[in-house]
Amino acid sequence: MNTFAGTSAYYRRFRPGIPVAVAALLDQAAPRDSPRRLLDIGTGPGLVVQALLPYFDDLIAVDAEVTMLTEAEALLRPAIDAAHQLQLHHAIAENFLPPEGWHPHLVTCGRVFQRLNQPCFLDRLSEYMAPEGVIAVFSDRSLWTADSPWQQATREVVQDFLGQPRRAGGGTFSTSGPLYEEVLRASAFSHVTSTAVPVRRHWKIPQVLGYLYSTPFAAPHLFDDRRDAFEQAVTNALAPFADSGVLTEDNAFTVLTARRPFANVDR
């Protein structure tokens, strides 16, 4: 079973995407060639590409799940004008090769980096990245790992219905392995910078439910005929924390940008 089976439509509607400040940070990190090229790995429904459209002309989005690419097509294609080129590729990141002569200036990789064979992917990336190109690996805390009282209460409801382990497709989620920064430093892209970007979000309870259904650990099919009961349990658990129906989340994106050590960082 695909890790994100049954979640793609919810992912597009209810995932918040990346903040403007993160998009601006990525813009500043990448070289300014023309045409300026972006490769988004594990694009999902295209939220990162959408945020970076103002900064790049030539964009490729890659995902291993066809349903996610369908959502990305629906989100991105209407925003593409004559000044942009967009390609969507169904591929595994470790095997992907761009068209001959196409060299990205920025490669973005969100939470999908956790699921990759990271050394293999970075080795392949070094074959086609532009000489001064940058890879950015970033994510915020998911609801599973966030620590506010209302988020803890939500996680407890999920665990009441589905058990204590964090689901991931047909298995469970594992956090084993070296830190991302260590993996990057051991690759061709060993010049690594880490930046934290705070973000505050406001949610209503139906949006929280939509977000949950966009995740592998609370995908809709996992609840079978108990979905109505689950939604009611989440609503009951969150109601005491909502201020005029709104739940506040304080989060932060950790953004790692990495380049070859000989690349010019004073553009």
Rank of each mutant, 00 (worst) to 15 (best):
T3E: 13
A5V: 02
S8G: 14
A9C: 07
Y11M: 12
R12M: 11
R13V: 15
R13D: 05
F14E: 13
F14D: 12
F14S: 13
F14V: 03
R15H: 08
P19K: 00
V20Q: 04
A23D: 00
A24L: 13
L26Y: 07
Q28G: 02
Q28S: 06
A29G: 05
A30Y: 01
A30M: 03
P31W: 00
D33Q: 06
L38W: 07
L38T: 07
L38P: 09
L38C: 01
L39E: 11
D40S: 15
D40M: 10
I41D: 11
I41R: 15
G42S: 12
T43L: 07
G44I: 12
P45L: 14
G46V: 10
L47E: 12
L47H: 11
V48Y: 07
V49E: 02
Q50N: 09
L53T: 08
P54S: 10
F56G: 04
F56Q: 13
D58M: 14
A61N: 13
A61S: 12
A64R: 03
A64I: 12
L69A: 03
A72N: 05
L75C: 09
A79V: 12
A79H: 03
A82C: 07
H84G: 05
L86S: 06
H90I: 09
H90K: 08
A91W: 02
A91K: 00
A93P: 09
A93C: 14
N95S: 15
F96H: 13
P98V: 01
G101K: 12
W102N: 01
H103N: 06
H103R: 05
P104W: 08
P104Y: 00
C109V: 04
G110H: 10
V112M: 02
R115I: 03
R115C: 00
L116P: 12
N117P: 08
P119W: 02
L122I: 00
D123Q: 15
S126Y: 05
S126A: 08
A130C: 02
A130V: 03
P131G: 09
G133M: 03
V134L: 02
I135A: 08
A136V: 11
D140P: 09
S142Q: 10
S142P: 09
A146H: 15
A146G: 09
D147K: 14
W150K: 13
Q151W: 07
E156Q: 02
V158C: 14
L162M: 13
G163E: 10
G171D: 15
S174C: 04
S176Q: 13
G177V: 02
P178I: 14
P178M: 11
L179K: 05
Y180M: 07
E181K: 08
A186Q: 13
F189Y: 01
S190G: 12
H191V: 00
V192P: 04
T193C: 03
T195C: 07
V197G: 05
V197F: 01
V199T: 12
H202Y: 09
K204P: 04
P206L: 00
Y211G: 15
T215W: 08
P216A: 12
A219L: 00
L222Y: 07
D224V: 05
D225V: 15
R227S: 06
A229I: 09
F230M: 08
Q232G: 06
V234H: 09
A237F: 05
P240S: 00
F241C: 00
F241W: 08
T248K: 01
D250V: 12
N251S: 14
N251Y: 05
A252T: 14
T254L: 11
A258N: 05
R259M: 11
R260Q: 01
R260I: 02
A263V: 00
A263D: 02
R267V: 03
